[in-house]
Design a binder for these strands. Structure first.
Ligand SMILES: [Mn+2]
Ligand SMILES: [Mn+2]
Ligand SMILES: [Mn+2]
Ligand SMILES: [Mn+2]
Lengths: 230, 230
DNA sequence: AATATAATTTAGATGTGTCTAAAAATATAT
DNA sequence: ATATATTTTTAGACACATCTAAATTATATT
């Protein structure tokens, strides 16, 4: 019932600006790894803007019913806000799949372009794109694609840095999807779907010695902190 | 040589806003069917804005070297302006081909979506899209797609309304690509590539009796004014 | 040529999204 | 508990893109 009302609301909803969408999406991502309200500074850092700008925008989003906000308390997305946000994430990830699968982009090139494509407004376009791509469930970086209703499946996965010596698993995702990090992985031969075994953990600098493709390589803690294993 | 300089300019060019791009594109289209400078009112009408807004924008575009402008004299695109404009048209039409050929949209649905997609900024994306589509030369409405250098091939074509009785030809394009007009054509069975013969021209209301698919139908002058024949 | 009409530009205002600098509230340390 | 540091908000400004109303210039009519 509440879903139906929400659905009707979304149908009659005013369009959101690119700026508004970027704020909503950022808050959505920050909420996934936090259980408190999202701070002004955290948002400012992600969006690369000033805290005062964030405060201004938060007020507007609050008036539009997308976030709930009390001064100095940080923000949380409302049900409607989450719906809008996950739809943007859905578009972003579907476009990334398109760019890699259909246009032969490599996985380190697609994020910036998807940042633009995610703001294209046409529900029919996304329906058809989804179909064209064969209803993918994950983007090129292993992140799940929310469904039309905004449901985002969370797969159990662990950071490589949390594995113990002799633990192993399949590489299923990246925490950081910047061009630099992904190109580093390419250089080291680390890809989604590959088996990784932890051979040794160095106490001194927390670097890891891992086995991949029957090759033994050493990676820093920073790398291991950005790789997901299942 | 001048082309090379232009190319270098384009490479180092600041990005243009969506509003600026829409003005440039509109002036480009108006120049194709006009030999004088483009008037403020003509632009205002196409963009659905006020003449005063157009004057403001024209000044900005003039300062950026995209149009040449003298007060009260209308504007013309500079070489650089034409380059930018044809690139936007190129993107618009390639996206339209994608939507029809790959996502199975019908030709009356794609224009609005392409209006958004044409502003996505990534030369590599367009290169790859072009390749993915097999380097198409025309969009779903029969309009030519400019090449990477901005060259737009003009095919010889005549308005159906200019044909005489017993003249015939192949339908190769539409003047108006609004949803309403294209859906009207669908209803009447008029498609690109079909042979049309003019049977009779009515003096009274300038309506036409035409033969298409061995069927005789009557169309108004307005329709005949928006169909191109080769 | 003078006048009326139409097109264009200017002046001044608004809404959006951003910024800097200063004030206020909250969190941390002594 | 008080002082200090950090975070957040406010105040005031600015660039962009738009608008209305008024002034200016160009064009058409008599
Ligand atoms: Mn991404
Ligand atoms: Mn974005
Ligand atoms: Mn179009
Ligand atoms: Mn456009």
């Amino acid at each position: 019932m509440l879903n139906k009302i929400l659905y009707i609301c979304v149908l009659f909803l005013p369009m959101f600006s690119q700026a508004e969408e970027n704020y909503i999406k950022t808050i959505f991502h920050l909420e996934l790894s936090s259980n408190t309200g999202i701070s002004t500074n955290a948002i400012a850092k992600k969006i690369d803007t000033k805290a005062s700008s964030v405060t201004d925008m938060i007020k507007k989003l609050s008036e539009k019913g997308l976030v709930s906000y009390k001064k100095y308390q940080g923000v949380t997305l409302t049900k409607l806000g989450k719906k809008i946000a996950s739809n943007i994430v859905r578009k972003h990830r579907l476009w990334e799949v398109f760019l890699v699968e259909k246009l032969n982009f490599s996985w380190d090139e697609v994020h910036e372009i998807a940042e633009q494509l995610e703001h294209i407004k046409s529900p029919k376009l996304i329906k058809k794109l989804d179909e064209h791509l064969g209803f993918p469930t994950h983007d090129p970086h292993g992140d799940p694609i929310p469904d039309e209703n905004g449901n985002l499946q969370t797969i159990e996965k662990r950071l490589l840095s949390n594995l113990k010596e002799n633990d192993f698993g399949i590489c299923v995702g990246v925490q950081d999807s910047s061009t630099e990090f992904l190109q580093y992985l390419d250089k080291k031969g680390i890809e989604l779907g590959k088996k990784i075994t932890v051979l040794e953990k160095e106490d001194f600098d927390e670097s890891l010695s891992i086995l991949i493709d029957n090759e033994k390589i050493t990676i820093s803690k920073k790398i291991a902190n950005n790789l997901y294993i299942k």
